[in-house]
Simulated assay, not measured.
Amino acid sequence: MTHPKLLSFNPETMEELLAAMEKVKQELESMKARLSSTQQSLAEKEAHLTTLRAERRKHLEEVLEMK
């Protein structure tokens, strides 16, 4: 059985649908850019933490050697 809305198709409805789809596409692209930025920031923070951990380990080893 065909849906009644499909029988009453009109170009304005199609334009509204295309406009809504374009808006969703733009929002998704914006979210993708923010996600990419967040991932980059997290990677930088992880690298910094790794450096701090290595420095801490080195300092602890130096302290232990002094004892």
Rank of each mutant, 00 (worst) to 15 (best):
A47R: 13
E62W: 01
A19R: 12
H3F: 13
F9E: 07
A19H: 08
E16H: 09
S37L: 04
A43M: 07
K45D: 05
K32G: 00
L49Q: 08
H3R: 15
H59E: 09
P11V: 01
E15H: 11
Q40I: 02
L49N: 10
A43C: 01
E12N: 11
E29P: 01
A33Y: 04
S41D: 01
H48L: 05
H59D: 05
A33W: 02
E65H: 03
L64V: 15
A33K: 03
L64P: 01
A33S: 04
A47M: 11
K67A: 04
R56S: 15
Q39T: 05
L6N: 11
K58R: 12
P11Q: 06
R57G: 02
L52H: 07
P11R: 03
M31E: 05
E65M: 04
E65D: 12
F9A: 09
A33R: 07
M66D: 05
A54G: 03
E44S: 12
L49F: 13
A47I: 05
K32M: 04
V24T: 15
R56M: 06
L49Y: 10
E22N: 14
H59S: 15
E61A: 04
N10P: 07
E46I: 14
E12M: 09
T38N: 06
A43Y: 00
E27H: 05
E29N: 10
A19G: 08
A33N: 05
L6R: 15
K67I: 11
A20S: 10
L6S: 14
F9M: 09
E55W: 01
T13K: 12
M66T: 01
H3C: 13
N10C: 09
K67E: 05
M21Q: 15
E27F: 02
L7K: 13
E27V: 00
R57L: 15
L60C: 15
